[in-house]
Design a protein around this nucleic acid. Structure first.
Lengths: 184, 184
DNA sequence: GTACGTTATGTAAATTTTTACATATACTAG
DNA sequence: CTAGTATATGTAAAAATTTACATAACGTAC
């Protein structure tokens, strides 16, 4: 099983979804920790089905093209549950912007500062979107956020990671932009 | 040009290095923002040389096998300098541990808490190593850390990113482990 | 009625990355 | 003297990911 397979099972353990829906989730809810294009999702669904982790049924629609709705099987749920507590082998972090920072001494400081200020804005924007979701969760899901057995708790946990990640990233970009412009 | 190519040029803009040295750097200094195996480094060096970004000379050694020492060319340096301030297209963040957190509601909370506490320890360990380097840099490189035109400033900038990343990641792991064990 | 956007599902090709295969020198520890 | 480790450089195969190709139904705006 691939990590992408577990990403898909993780989504299907919460609700039934089509390949199209899954692809959208990969760029939204799950987007800040895993992602995939539809060209990866469809073949992976076929593989998961061949191995008995999911099944599908065709849903005919009147106002839209028909779709295949996928559902996780007992086997799939068991595999997912087991995978969760298995230690993850550390994958290398790759970040092109930090790589640029490593060679920033070669660039014009003012031009470079612009680059990092723009990045700061992007991460602050994402942070604000996450903060809105957090506010919404705390209002609507209040009781569930303390229950480790609830999927809402898990959603909140990953959101917390997104919040921390964006906050820290934005602060670093601002610090670097300031330093490049000689602001102490 | 690939991002890996710029990663290599970024290292060669500071010092001449062999393919073997470059591979080690990819797992150390540059490790917390880019990495590559030697099977990627050697072919990439050949490509960079074919395109005129680097040159090499064979250095004969008595106590070790001979090596090819690579040097960046004027063309290479110009390309690197230009790349630094070009906006980086955002790549998706993929993190298996956060993906596991998304499905943590299916697992035994105590077992899951163990997983995240172990991860917290790993990130705290890395943080400590970075903090030691930071202390060393502040002592030894004090004058350079305020000069955006110095490679030491750039090294410090990337280290700052590593520090923030590990600190935030470790805190999140601890928070999640606590929450899983019902600690408010 | 036609151009565009959304929904919907796939395949093909290219690129990137990882894992495995392959070889060779020289030092050190047992 | 032999096994292991570090240095040193490559290639081959597999896996993962991205980009491009390809099609089709249906609704809306012009």
């Amino acid at each position: 099983m691939t990590t992408l397979g577990y990403a898909i099972l993780g989504l299907l353990s919460r609700e039934t979804l089509s390949g199209y829906d899954l692809t959208r989730r990969m760029g939204e809810q799950v987007g800040y920790f895993w992602s995939a294009r539809h060209s990866q999702v469809y073949p992976e669904l076929a593989r998961l089905e061949a191995e008995g982790y999911v099944t599908h049924s065709v849903v005919e629609q009147r106002e839209r093209p028909d779709k295949k709705v996928y559902e996780i099987t007992g086997t799939g749920l068991a595999a997912l549950r087991e995978w969760v507590t298995e230690p993850a082998r550390p994958r290398p972090t790759r970040d092109e912007l930090v790589l640029k920072a490593y060679s920033v001494w070669l660039a014009d400081p003012a031009e470079a500062a612009r680059l990092f200020r723009e990045a700061a804005s992007r991460h602050e924007g994402q942070l604000e979107r996450y903060e809105e979701i957090e506010g919404w969760m705390k209002r609507e899901w209040a009781e569930d956020l303390g229950r480790p057995g609830s999927p809402r708790f898990a959603s909140y946990a990953t959101l917390r990671r997104g919040l921390g990640y964006e906050r820290e990233y934005a602060a670093w970009c601002r610090w670097l932009a300031d330093a490049l412009e000689g602001i102490r």
